[in-house]
Design a protein around this nucleic acid. Structure first.
Length: 281
DNA sequence: GTTCGACCTAT
DNA sequence: TAGGTCGAA
């Protein structure tokens, strides 16, 4: 059984799931919705104004999941290299906006956009010795003007964020409902929103809606499949996937990796980016 | 159903 | 070029 302190905080934060985190001295300070979290490896300490166990998916049976996804050597190596990496259960609205902002951008730029949104639309909150801006509330962002969003340097994503926020504010998107639905239905619903395609929908589903069979296929994932799984997923190439090809490939991926495919994606993604010395937060 | 160019911004 | 998506042809 994995011990609770086997969580590697730095590895988990720096695995592309979350963006609103900063390392201050020895501790990682981050925002999840209206909550502030302070995580420290040594001496080990996890503090949150919200529910830290929920955030770190302490309810998952990690031993069982890791065993289940250890189907091949590549995944086993990835797990070994990033031991202590956890999947995170994020605030759904923040996750939704974060990955809408992620399209055709870099981690550093995504972080900057989200920080701008927090500074402009978030509420100042104190926790521990820190005072920082929380993530904007749905209603606040839904009422933001296009110019205000453009001021946050969102670029072409500004109208996506505006419409996406309106959809949540009007209950056209209801995260509590999406959480109850099956993977396919939830994905279909998310993809009705402007700015959400297959990849972004998978990220939202995996990181905030408990859809562990979601397996976001981005440029990196595609390279991974080509490099290590060429023989298993024959039709994968370096070219961008069309919508139908993405869906077909995803089906095959779930058949191969199983119901916890999303966990395997996270380990593989982390491994390959580290291997290529790509920077994180 | 697929292909292709455009798209904000920062490095 | 970067962790995509949209709209037109």
């Amino acid at each position: 059984m994995q011990k609770t302190d086997s969580i590697n905080i730095e590895t988990t934060i720096n695995s592309g799931q979350v963006f609103l985190w900063n390392k201050i001295g020895e501790q990682w300070v981050g925002i999840d919705g209206q909550d502030i979290m302070i995580l420290r490896q040594k001496p080990y300490s996890l503090k949150s104004s919200g529910n830290i166990d929920n955030f770190l998916r302490r309810d998952d049976n990690l031993e069982k999941i890791l065993k289940n996804i250890s189907t091949d050597r590549t995944v086993r190596d990835a797990i070994k290299q990033s031991s202590g990496l956890r999947l995170i259960r994020q605030d759904p609205f923040q996750c939704y906006i974060s990955f809408i902002c992620s399209s055709n951008s870099s981690i550093q730029n995504i972080k900057s956009m989200l920080e701008n949104l927090c500074r402009k639309f978030g509420v100042k909150k104190e926790f521990g010795k820190y005072q920082l801006h929380t993530f904007p509330r749905v209603e606040t962002l839904a009422n933001a003007t296009m110019n205000e969003l453009l001021d946050c340097r969102l670029g072409f994503r500004a109208k996506y964020v505006k419409e996406a926020s309106l959809a949540v504010n009007s209950n056209k998107i209801d995260f509590k409902e999406l959480r109850k639905l099956d993977y396919q239905t939830a994905i279909r619903s998310l993809k009705n929103i402007l700015g959400i395609g297959n990849k972004v929908a998978d990220c939202i589903a995996l990181f905030s809606l408990d859809k562990l069979e979601a397996f976001p296929i981005d440029r990196w994932t595609q390279r991974i499949l080509l490099k290590y799984y060429k023989d298993i997923f024959c039709d994968v190439s370096e070219k961008p996937l069309t919508e139908k090809k993405y869906e077909k490939l995803h089906d095959d991926i779930v058949k191969y990796f199983g119901p916890y495919a999303g966990y395997s994606q996270q380990f593989l993604f982390k491994m390959e980016r580290d291997l290529n010395k790509k920077s994180w937060l």
